[in-house]
Design a protein around this nucleic acid. Structure first.
Length: 430
RNA sequence: GUGGCCGUAGCUCAGUUGGUAGAGCCCCUGAUUGUGGUUCAGGUUGUCGCGGGUUCGAGUCCCGUCGGUCGCCCCA
């Protein structure tokens, strides 16, 4: 502040302590994706602006980080990865067996007004299944979404996946003789119906020649409304994930490119904006490739910002994260150099231990003994190795139990330490 | 794009009816315990967001501006 520079609005510095949350999320996301047999990919952060203009059907998106580059190209920091993925998948799909199960973790940028749960730069976990238009693929992806939440420590009392199917409204519109723009109006009304007074909803419906009771039949019998939705539900219930699901046909997910099943992850207390969302987009790849590649797809994305708040507000999830942090030691073994004459021996030892893959830290300059032990415990390392006057006899100190044992700096030292690190004696938890 | 609230040391903040700045925490040093999360002592940093105005005098009042935050619109 006083030093002049600060981050741009909506952008964040990640101090080491902030990186802990980020790494925790990334680690968890990756492990869930791999459990589901997904492969990781990545695409550029900077893309030609046309990629996004074309995707949104020439509807000019307003919230882009868009500028001309030095070569006068109209470029944009990616606001999402789905468009890039569609391009990549179209180009590469012949090289991979179907379905493609791909995921990506990366930054996106949107020029929006920052507020709680919304920044101008954020990380997103994107998962997509391409080349399979079955309800089973829908269920597989939604299961992954649910397990992503479960892996972070959330239970069915904390969050719900609200499921819908845009085909329901499409069919409804056809039946009622609504045209394309009237359908869009209808979806907007449905999307807002819980926020707006009933009279307003009725008035808005009247403008497209509908009455509220036209909708209530569908809301009350969602099972009948969409056989596909029922099939997806059955699939997920068979997996034992039924407790996490709520059918809610009012979920329509913006107006972009979704063509079928859509879903959102909500916190049950509803104190946050949607935590995650996704849906089926069977025509996007075709649109972006001018019809050359037809690849049905369903995708899901979750950002780091809202989920961060959600973890903070949910006790079990927060405790799980705290526990994970406890185990993030920055080194395995701290060398305590009690006598500066032994520094050359300590340096040799440090190098050997590091070559063996053991994480080593030690004081870079002459430091008092008690300071060294303090530094050692600050690293959360399980052990300190004390080089003292009895060298080459060493003391291995168990930092959690505050007990010492004597070991010798001989050829077996490294393997001795390795086996101790692999089989810790006694609890490491306080 | 629009509205409310806020902007004082690295962090959290206090600053009484306007008189040229404080506390706690953190960090660092020292002492003590000569192998650690204690205690004690000491120390660093502020053009009080920025610009202008009122006043003998403004962190304290007024205007503007920038920034932060929360909400609305929007949310791929």
């Amino acid at each position: 502040m006083a030093s002049g520079f600060q981050t741009l609005p909506g952008f964040r510095d990640f101090a080491p302590s902030d990186c802990l949350l980020r790494n925790y999320l990334f680690e968890t996301w990756r492990s869930v994706a791999r459990r589901y047999g997904f492969s990781e990919y990545e695409t550029p952060l900077l893309e030609p602006t046309d990629l996004y203009l074309k995707k949104s059907g020439d509807e000019l998106p307003t919230q882009l980080f868009r500028f001309p580059d030095q070569g006068e190209r109209d470029v944009t920091l990616r606001p999402e990865v789905t468009a890039s993925l569609a391009r990549l998948a179209a180009a590469e799909q012949r090289n991979y067996p179907k379905p493609l199960k791909w995921f990506e973790i990366g930054q996106c940028f949107r020029y929006e007004k920052p507020q709680k749960g919304r920044t101008r730069e954020f990380y997103q976990f994107n998962t997509d299944i391409l080349g399979d238009d079955s309800p089973a693929a829908d269920a597989e992806l939604i299961a992954l979404a649910i397990d992503t939440m479960r892996a972070l420590g959330f239970g069915p009392a904390d969050f719900q996946v609200r499921l819908s199917d845009r085909q329901v409204w499409q069919a409804f519109a056809e039946q009622k003789g609504l045209d394309e723009s009237q359908l869009a109006t209808l979806l907007a009304i449905i999307d807002k119906k819980d926020k707006v007074p009933e009279e307003k909803t009725a008035t808005a419906l009247a403008e497209i020649s509908l009455v509220p009771s036209d909708l209530s039949d569908l809301f009350e019998n969602p099972d009948n409304a969409s056989p596909r939705l029922t099939e997806v539900l059955t699939n997920l219930e068979t997996r034992g994930l039924g407790d996490y699901l709520t059918v809610d046909l009012s979920i329509v997910r913006g107006l972009a490119y979704y063509t079928g099943i859509v879903f959102e992850v909500f916190d049950t207390s509803r104190s946050l904006r949607a935590v995650a969302g996704g849906g089926r987009y069977d025509t996007l790849v075709s649109t972006l490739t001018d019809g050359k590649t037809d690849l049905p797809a369903i995708g899901f994305a979750i950002g780091d910002v809202v989920i961060g708040h959600f973890i903070e507000e949910t006790t079990p999830a927060k405790l799980q994260f705290e526990q994970w942090k406890q185990n993030q030691a920055t080194c395995d073994l701290y060398l305590v150099i009690d006598n500066e004459d032994l520094r050359p021996d300590a340096l040799k030892l440090a190098q050997q231990l590091r070559d063996a893959g053991i994480r080593i830290d030690f004081p870079l300059t002459k430091t008092k003994f008690d300071k060294q032990l303090k530094a050692a415990s600050a690293t959360r390392a399980p052990y300190a190795l004390i080089l003292g006057q009895d060298f080459p006899e060493l003391k291995l100190r168990h930092l959690s139990t505050r007990s010492n044992e004597t070991i010798r700096a001989n050829a077996d030292l490294i393997s001795t330490i390795q086996s101790k690190l692999e089989n810790p004696e006694g609890g490491l938890l306080a």
